[in-house]
Design a protein around this nucleic acid. Structure first.
Length: 680
DNA sequence: ATAGGGTTAG
């Protein structure tokens, strides 16, 4: 009775619509019984159906029991492996098919095989497949050519891709999309937008996937207005929103800092996968909203999703920003248990340990992670630099060179910055020259800024000035401020006033820079200018970022603002600070009130110094940890000279190691001295 | 009949 119902057209229909493996197996059995498997198209259909339901083993077994597989049978299995994301298996089957010799690959076969090459970045095999496809008459096949385009794009060969694209007699939406996303992915978003315009000019309308590419292009060029208009276009055209499109929109708004909007779109997504979550988490983390990022990570887990490495990298970035070592360690443990370390994860963990003050953990992980690229090396160089260990930074740099990796502009920025944090003048001069002469890297503003800082701070103010004069590019504010700082430190007042003028020309919106300018004028007794600067600062002071310090105690983060009286332990903290103040005055401490920029009486200024947020944080740390425990403080501003001085005394009086990370670098205080050697 | 293009990270 059943066999009567299973005439061929309905069998075909049954196979292609069958939704569960059990029914499919029954159909399969019937096909064997009725002999309908001998129909030339049957094995292929059955293989495709098994593959669609995810049963790759059953698909393989159908293939094996087919005595003379034809092209559609071969293709079905090859496509099944491609969908199963096994590109190497695709290529193996492709070669097996060739050596079998009884069938000739067709357009589908070549297309899928080329896709596999693109996934494996295997150009060599691709060239072989390409020539085979071309002599087989598929030179102008739009599928084969699009696959080739994609291959070139994925291998970064945009010139080859462009050449092929121009030669294609027929292009469809996929060929255009491949070029658009290709240019986005090689970092040429403007070119991608140009290709889209050309596509429109040829009366081809973009579809959903094209829009995703364009959104990425907008993210890359930071063009919010265009991004919004594409979003509008998508809505106007009633495009079918799916999780990928929504995720790229969330990402676009998040990257651009419109986190409310990003969050709104995210909330309204009917289906959220790990990638959407990660896009939002990275948006928060990259905009400095560390606690929001970490809250989203928790929510993601509450929704039953396991964070992937991308989400964890963003979470680690958030931990680094706020110095949340406890959580960073937990995430590290999670990675060790459940994931594999790739370069990016490795670098993120290294960076986290370093920024949370644990340089030795950073280095031991660095030695363990074998997959290193220039970014991983650079992270380690920068870590040693930030902790004031310039010699070690150089040694890492030399090790990197030995591996054959070429240093780039970022590597030199980290290296020169490391020298400047350690006052390694000779090394700085030597490597700065070699950067251009041996490595062919033109120094950029950031490199000059490091060198000027290094030279000027070490007293070579004239040499630093000469270096600025020799610059081909226009010196920016960073360079002039570095020189000004040196002038101030070494009492080069005449030059200082000239440089102060240069700095002011560039309209600095940083309170610290105005303070420096004001101090330079004050040293030169230019009182009218001082008054002017103070006025400017008072205006800015209204909207300046308040200083805060973070300290982790017993796995919890505690934040302190300047003069924070709301803290439950405020009384005890003040008692501790008064005791320390008494002790350090006995040892010779004198408050440096010039670092309080208000018109106040001296004793009030001293009181404010005592209330600087890092002092509250240090006192709180001392009160709530056992003797001998190291204390790590994270500051959002530079540590002031007075607090720097006071912390040295604290470390001696209480016999503790105190680590302070300010916006510029790390200070390790121990036995009354700081690792920076007062060179900062 | 089927095959080619899309989302997040250091």
């Amino acid at each position: 009775m059943l066999s009567g119902a299973l005439s061929r057209p309905s069998l075909k229909h049954l196979i292609s619509t069958c939704g569960d493996p059990h029914t499919l197996a029954q159909i399969h059995a019937l096909m064997i019984l009725t002999g309908s498997l001998s129909h030339p198209q049957s094995p292929g259909r059955l293989i495709a159906a098994y593959a669609r339901l995810g049963d790759i083993a059953a698909a393989q077994s159908v293939f094996k029991t087919t005595s003379f597989p034809n092209v559609s049978t071969w293709n079905a299995l090859i496509i099944a492996q491609s969908r199963h994301n096994s590109p190497a298996e695709v290529l193996r089957l492709y070669h097996l098919m060739l050596s079998d010799g009884r069938v000739r690959p067709d357009s589908s076969t070549f297309t899928v095989a080329l896709k596999a090459c693109a996934q494996l970045l295997n150009l060599e095999t691709a060239e072989e497949i390409k020539s085979h496809a071309f002599v087989s008459g598929y030179e102008h096949d739009v599928f084969v050519c699009s696959s080739l385009l994609n291959l070139y794009v994925k291998c970064g060969k945009m010139d080859e891709a462009m050449k092929l694209f121009d030669e294609m007699p027929k292009r469809d939406i996929v060929s255009w999309t491949t070029m658009i996303t290709g240019f986005v992915n090689v970092g040429r978003p403007l070119k991608a937008i140009g290709v889209y315009r050309k596509m429109q000019a040829e009366s081809m309308e973009g579809d959903e996937i094209v829009m995703v590419g364009l959104i990425q292009a907008c993210v890359a060029v930071g063009d919010v207005r265009m991004g919004r208009s594409i979003h509008g276009h998508m809505v106007r055209c009633c495009m079918k929103m799916d999780v990928v499109m929504e995720t790229s929109l969330v990402n676009m708004y998040a990257k651009n800092g419109s986190l409310e909007l990003a969050h709104l779109i995210f909330e309204q997504m009917p289906c959220k996968n790990v990638v959407s979550w990660s896009a939002l988490i990275s948006g928060y983390a990259q905009n400095g909203l560390a606690s929001d990022a970490l809250q989203m990570l928790v929510k993601m887990q509450e929704c039953g999703l396991q964070p992937d490495s991308v989400a964890l990298v963003s979470a680690l970035l958030a931990c680094s920003q706020i110095g949340f070592l406890k959580l960073g360690k937990t995430i590290h443990g999670y990675i060790e248990k459940r994931l594999e370390f790739d370069r990016i994860l490795g670098t993120a963990v290294i960076d986290m340990y370093s920024k949370c003050g644990c340089l030795s953990s950073a280095h031991s992980l660095f030695s363990r992670v074998r997959l290193r690229d220039s970014i991983s090396w650079n992270a380690m160089i920068a870590s040693y630099g930030a902790h004031g260990r310039g010699k070690e930074a150089l040694s890492i740099f030399l090790q990197m060179s030995e591996t054959g990796l070429e240093p780039d502009h970022a590597t030199f920025a980290s290296l020169l910055s490391a020298f400047s944090h350690s006052g390694l003048v000779e090394e700085g001069r030597y490597w700065f020259d070699l950067m251009l002469q041996k490595f062919g890297i033109e120094p950029a503003e950031k490199h000059y800024a490091c060198m000027v800082d290094l030279l000027a701070r070490a007293g070579h103010v004239e040499e630093a000035h000469e270096l600025i004069k020799s610059m081909v590019i226009k010196p920016g504010i960073a360079v002039w401020v570095a020189l000004l700082s040196g002038c101030h430190k070494h009492k080069k007042l005449e030059l200082g006033e000239y440089v102060a003028g240069k700095v002011l020309e560039l309209n600095p919106d940083d309170l610290g820079i105005h303070a420096l300018v004001s101090n330079v004028y004050a040293a030169g007794k230019k009182w009218d200018k001082v008054v002017e600067e103070r006025k400017a600062m008072k205006k800015m002071g209204m909207r300046k970022v308040p200083g805060y310090s973070l300290v982790e105690v017993n796995g919890k983060l505690h934040a302190f603002l300047v003069e924070d009286k709301t803290h439950p332990q405020y009384e005890k903290i003040m008692e501790m600070l008064e005791r320390l103040d008494y002790e350090m005055r006995k040892l010779g401490y004198i408050p440096k009130t010039e670092f309080v920029f208000h018109d106040l009486e001296e004793d009030v200024k001293e009181r404010i110094l005592c209330n600087h947020s890092e002092r509250l944080a240090i006192a709180f740390g001392l009160l709530n940890t056992s003797p001998g425990t190291r204390i790590v403080i994270i500051k959002n501003l530079r540590v002031c000279l007075d607090c720097h001085d006071a912390t040295k005394y604290f470390s001696k009086i209480v016999n503790r190691e105190i680590v302070v990370r300010d916006v510029k670098r790390f200070h390790h205080f121990k036995d009354g001295v700081c690792s920076c050697g007062d060179y900062w």
